[in-house]
Every structure is written in structure tokens, then in C-alpha cells.
């Protein structure tokens, strides 16, 4: 069952990446659909991050002393200030580890 799920996922992902690279494909997406799809990436990223940051085991997080929330805020600020992906990722992860295992432990 897992093997089937894996194979189907692999096919689905490859198909979406390859479809428009195929020269014999005659269709193009219409402009409206194209614009709707333009929102897929920010929607996916937000929908994955938000529950990790704002909820814990099915409960809304209301406590400010939450390493996920503070780490995410740090990542946003560093990204806005430096526009450096690696710096933002590494520094926010360091802050997260310090908060989780040291300050709030």
C-alpha cells in the first residue's frame, strides 16, 4: 500500500513538473487559470507554516513564549532586513533551538 502511494505520488509530481516541457502538448492554460495558479505557491507555503506556528496538538497557541512563533517572527524580520535566505534560515533555527532547549526549557 505504501509502495503504491509512493509510486502514484512520484508520477503525479513528475507529471506536473514535466507537462508543459513536452513539445507535442498543444494546450496552454488560459490567462485566468494561469493567474489563479500563480497564488498556489504562497498559498501552499502559508497553509503549511501557519498551523505549525499557531497551533500545537490541535490547540490554538495563545502563549507568546512559543519558540515556533518567535522563531518565525525572527525569520520574517531577518529576511526583510537582509534578503539573505541562508542567513535567515540558519539564524532563526539557532534562535529556535536556544528558546526551546534553553530559555523555555
Amino acid at each position: 500500500m505504501i509502495a503504491l502511494t509512493l509510486a502514484a505520488m512520484a508520477l503525479l509530481v513528475f507529471a506536473s513538473r514535466y507537462l508543459f516541457l513536452e513539445p507535442r502538448l498543444p494546450i496552454e492554460l488560459g490567462p485566468k487559470l494561469r493567474r489563479l495558479m500563480g497564488y498556489a505557491t504562497p498559498a501552499v507555503l502559508s497553509a503549511v507554516i501557519a498551523p505549525m506556528v499557531l497551533s500545537h496538538q490541535g490547540e490554538l497557541v495563545t502563549d507568546w513564549q512559543n519558540p515556533y512563533l518567535l522563531g518565525a517572527i525572527a525569520a520574517v524580520l531577518i529576511m526583510l532586513l537582509t534578503k539573505n535566505t541562508l542567513l535567515s534560515t540558519v539564524l532563526s533555527m539557532v534562535l529556535f533551538v536556544m528558546l526551546k532547549f534553553w530559555l523555555f526549557a
Binding site: A43, L45, I49, M52, M79, S88, T89
Partner: peptide
Amino acid sequence: EFAVVATFTAMLVPMIRSLAIACCCATAS
């Protein structure tokens, strides 16, 4: 799993260039 939050946040922030994208992110979140 914070690695995902850190990586995605760094990819997402530069993407929010319009009110429409901000609205998309707020709704999805």
C-alpha cells in the same frame, strides 16, 4: 519541523509583493 517553518518563511517573505498575495497568505493561514 521548525526547519520547514524557517525555509518556507525565507521563501515566502520575498514573494509577498502585492495586497492580493498578502490576502491569499492571510486566508490560507
